[in-house]
Amino acid sequence: MSPARTERAVVWSLRGAALAAAAIVGLIVALLLVESIPAIRNLALRLVTDSGWYPAPAATDGSFRITPMVVGTLLITAGAVVIAAPLGLASALFCRFFAPPGVAAIYRRLVELLAGIPGVIYGFWGLVVLVPLISALRPPGASVLTAIVVLALMILPTVALLSESALRDVPQRHLQAAAALGLSRWGTIAGVALPAARSGIVTAVILATGRAIGETLAVVMVVGNIVQIPSSLLQPARALTGNIALEMGYASGDHRSALFFSGLILLVLVMLLTALAAWLRGDEHDHA
């Protein structure tokens, strides 16, 4: 083959590979949809109106109310984000504005380490350390609160690292101008740095929210997994992700399909968040 033809063949095979890589996400959506069809057709509104979650392979034999799991996921996610967002942001401000350079470098390394700890290890730590602690407060210990704390720890590094990089993108001359105008350090941060980095920080929180919604085993290990809408944060509950993890092993028929459908809900939620984050970032670039 001539060099030009080889080159063309190479480019086309590279295109094929890239297309295959890009197609995976479509394949995931398609498969989840296909597997969800029995649940959508046979259960439909019963996913909300049934009396409880007593799944069976045939729709007629069981009851399939997934509302408690949806509430569980939303509660745990919201709680984790409410804790992790301010703490993560404070962490980023510490690195960027408060810590001496040496300390900031070590601290950043440490947050990166936290980001690298597997969910399973967070969950295990929560199970052997936090659950007994919270159980002393009020049994059983495995509760929405425990899951919130574990999850907040897990997503804090995401907020911290991404917000810090957003803060680093704020031009130095803006900060100097603020100082020259006589703003105090906190005045500079609150009046200049945070507003300038706002969309980056919001993106960080959104991406962290996505992680929290999708986290599975760390939550399973500490939340108690009882299917109920908890009346207090100290009660156990079950998340959508955990429900899938706990039941996929033996589920079949409509039950299995209902689990795929809850996976589809998770996927759609996370995709909406990703799209929101991308849109915010695009917005920022347009202004720049």
């Binding site: 890009a22 995976i24 597997e35 996505g210």
Partner: peptide
């Protein structure tokens, strides 16, 4: 357009929760 498409798809793929990968892998 193709580069944008590939990059966007991979970005979305990066956000897919791991349990959903589990469902996908189990089915496929």
């Amino acid at each position: 357009a193709f580069a944008q498409f590939v990059r966007r798809s991979l970005e979305v793929l990066a956000g897919v929760p791991s349990i959903v990968f589990g469902l996908f892998g189990n089915a496929l």
